[in-house]
Amino acid sequence: MTDSATASTPTMPRRTTRRFDLARTALFAYVVLFLLFILAPLIVVIGSSFEPRELLRFPPQGLSLRWYHQALNSDLFVGAAWNSLIIAVLATLGALLLGVPAAYGLARFDFRGREAVSGLLNSPLLVPELVMGLALLQILAGLHIASSLVTLTFGHILICLPYVVRTIHSAVLGVDRSIEEAAANLGAARWRIYLTILLPIIRPALYAAILFSFLMSFDNAVLSLFLVSARTSTLPISVYNYVQYSLDPAIAAVSTLLMAVSVVALFTASRLVPLDRIKQ
């Protein structure tokens, strides 16, 4: 093997080598352009957040934390950030409580209308958020319920639900049914099987569902637009409102912080779920 390989290398035609080089260069250029395409908006936002003057521009004319200071001391942004955080946590909890049992049922039991239920649970993915927002607004108005953190949370649970159901559904399908039967056979009641066997095994998927849910809610603007009131604005909505009246680097600083939350969440999740555990 080795002998024939070394023997054949010198006689390899030169054109093949050159074509190979060309392909490598093309691939390299493709990767660089691709990364640039993804990263460019982020770089612009992060860069302009350090601008010391009043004007939003890139590249910044200096490096200053002035706008971070201002953003973190603004009642508008800080209050909205708290709202976003509370809603994201509650919506995630709600989506897990509803979604995990639903996903388990869909994965494990064969019942009439299963496909319909599955479709229904995934429908928030298909219906435009704009339409959903409008529908919810109409329902609330019809029932004479004022917008509040509660109504906003319910709206967000709807958006988060499909992510939880899909993630957990495929995770449960990946767990051999006989593992649960083995636990029952060894004397475990149903709830103990869930707590000691099923949930620990699908833990990576649970983390993924929590992460998706949290980010979907925390970053959501379109649905929130219909459900916020003056007192219950969320961070993305506040950013949106702020941009309509002024365009200073404070908005870039807030956006950068918003991004940081997502990155931290993603990083934490990846630490909690080492890659080798996901494959298991």
């Binding site: 051999d176 006989s178 593992i179 083995a182 636990a183 056979n185 475990a188 095994i201």
Partner: peptide
């Protein structure tokens, strides 16, 4: 119900609990 029968069962695919050590698997029952 199965969990009240005191029957030993060895599954075709073994059905070991993947997240537990060998000790914990055997200790489960």
């Amino acid at each position: 119900p199965p969990n009240k029968r005191n029957i030993g069962l060895v599954f075709q695919g073994y059905a070991l609990f993947p997240h537990m050590s060998v000790f914990d698997n055997v200790a489960y029952g």
